[in-house]
Amino acid sequence: MTTTTRSSVRRESSSQSQNGAAAGSKHELEQQPSPNSKRSKKGDTIPSPTEAYGDGKHIPRPSRQKTESNANGIGAKPEKKTTDQDQNQNGTAEQTGARNIPIPSNVLEKGLIYFFTRGRVGIDEPHSIRDIRRSYLVLRPLSQDAKLGPGTIADAGTSRLIAIPKKVLPLSGRDRWVAFVEKSHASFQVLKDEFLSAEDYTTETAGVRHSPAAAPVAEGVYAITTTGRESHLAYMVTLPPELGEVQEELGIKEKGSFVISTRNPQYEGPKGAALPQGPEYPKDIQDEFRSLRWSSTQPKHLDYANTQLLLVGESSGIEKATTTPASPSSTKPQKGQEGGYGDGGGKQPVAEELETLEDEDTHRMQGLPGDDADAIFADLKACAGEHLGLRTTF
């Protein structure tokens, strides 16, 4: 088993890259997927794109107004800009208001993403994908106009814990499976106490059982984007600097994305993948689904526990996810226009923002003491000594 250190050779800035029971036991699915399954082509009964999104007509546009559930302040006007010099006084690497370039309008949310796994009961150190019980994503949203400076991120109490029962991320359009929001509006303390830590518990039949601690396998930045009809979750990995066997087996890429949809809780979930209880959406969110079984995911959906998500792989990397849809009425800066993304290099504005954020995150994580796991747990305000290191090999 190999763990990574940030003293190892790190790849250059992303712009130069050549590569375009604990928490899980509290929301059990009615039928667990087979631990032998790595990337089943058939899997659960999953809708086609037309079944998921309808005929493409009357697709609701994401609201640009700050809603009550939008607790991370996306779209809000900053009261004060911050600089590298005063970030320590604010106690966070998130420098709200410091991004002085307009963010592409089809970026619904951006932030930091952490990838975790948890071994099966009694297995602290998995030796293969079969030994992993479940994979997780932790999303920590950032303000739209924020950049990343040095230091750790503050606990805004807006993190989401997303469970992936299939254990691996979808890689192509043939890979379609369900995930769900395990926790929403989670503080780092809640994540530490109810997710990251190991737990021993007693059952009447088996006696004392051991649920292992969650182990980090990657960290990076993400953006939830819309291409008009679909939503995508695109990410770029910062740690580990070089992906290994573990990341490859889990479907984690240096640059990756998947289509992400939200199930209408008024309909039953896919066979064998239904949750005992659905999300409690307010009426305005529920009404947006109309009669559709699935709708393109909006960030506000992730603010409700038990939200069920459909992940569909994309073999093209982040290309589709970062394509800005054509809009004659758009007022955002276009390619070559001064004062915005897309001034050169032929890159899409969304891709440029994501790469800029990843470059900032790379410098930020390099400045934190210890190895890669130490940096990740420092960000989450947890002690790395109590947990496993970041693995690249089984």
Results as ranks from 00 to 15, higher is better:
Ala351Met: 04
Pro216Asn: 01
Leu302Pro: 02
Arg120Pro: 02
Glu360Val: 11
Asp131Ile: 13
Leu310Trp: 04
Arg133Leu: 15
Arg64His: 06
Ile74Ala: 12
Thr362Arg: 12
Gln144Val: 08
Met236Val: 04
Val107Lys: 06
Pro141Phe: 08
Ala23Trp: 00
Leu310Arg: 07
Glu254Ile: 04
Asp84Met: 12
Ser291Glu: 13
Glu268Met: 07
Thr331Cys: 12
Thr152Ala: 12
Thr202Lys: 15
Pro212Ala: 10
Lys147Trp: 07
Gly251Cys: 05
Thr205Asn: 13
Val350Pro: 00
Ser69Asn: 13
Gly43Asp: 04
Leu354Ile: 00
Lys381Thr: 08
Gly43Pro: 00
Gln85Leu: 14
Glu182Phe: 06
Thr152Ile: 08
Gln337Leu: 10
Tyr201Thr: 02
Leu239Cys: 10
Leu388Asp: 08
Lys381Val: 02
Asp131Met: 06
Gly313Thr: 05
Pro279Met: 13
Ala163Thr: 03
Asp200His: 15
Met365Ile: 10
Gln337Arg: 10
Lys110His: 03
Ile46Trp: 05
Ala206Pro: 00
Arg176Thr: 07
Lys41Phe: 06
Glu268Cys: 01
Ser295Ala: 15
His127Gln: 14
Ser197Cys: 09
His387Lys: 06
Lys147Val: 13
Gln31Thr: 14
Pro47Asp: 11
Asp374Ala: 09
Ser15Glu: 04
Pro78Arg: 07
Val221Gly: 02
Asn306Glu: 06
Ser7Cys: 09
Ser330Asn: 08
Gln277Leu: 10
Arg293Glu: 11
Ala274Trp: 02
Thr92Trp: 12
Gly244Trp: 14
Asp371Lys: 04
Thr5Arg: 12
Pro60Gln: 06
Gln298Gly: 09
Gly389Pro: 06
Ile153Ser: 08
Gly149Asn: 08
Pro141Glu: 03
Gln286Tyr: 14
Leu250Pro: 04
Glu79Lys: 14
Gln85Ala: 11
Thr356Tyr: 00
Tyr136Trp: 14
Ser14Lys: 06
Asp287Trp: 13
Gly370Gln: 13
Pro270Phe: 03
Phe394Ser: 03
Ala186Arg: 11
Asn100Ile: 14
Thr96Phe: 11
Thr324Ile: 14
Ala215Leu: 11
Ser327Leu: 14
Ser172Ala: 11
Ala214Ile: 10
Trp294Val: 03
Leu112Glu: 06
Cys383Lys: 14
Ser327Lys: 12
Gly344Ser: 11
Lys38Asp: 03
Thr392Arg: 15
Pro78Ile: 09
Phe377Arg: 08
Ser15Ala: 01
Lys192Phe: 07
Glu358Ser: 01
Gly149Ala: 09
Ser34Gly: 14
Gly73Ser: 06
Leu112Ala: 08
His387Ile: 01
Lys347Ala: 07
Ala52Arg: 01
Lys147Tyr: 05
Ser15Phe: 15
His210Trp: 13
Glu254Trp: 15
Lys57Arg: 07
Asn19Met: 12
Ser34Thr: 03
Glu386Trp: 05
Pro240Leu: 12
Lys42Gly: 02
Asp55Ser: 13
Gln95Pro: 07
Asn70Met: 14
Ala375Trp: 09
Glu386His: 09
Lys57Pro: 01
Lys42Thr: 12
Gly340Met: 00
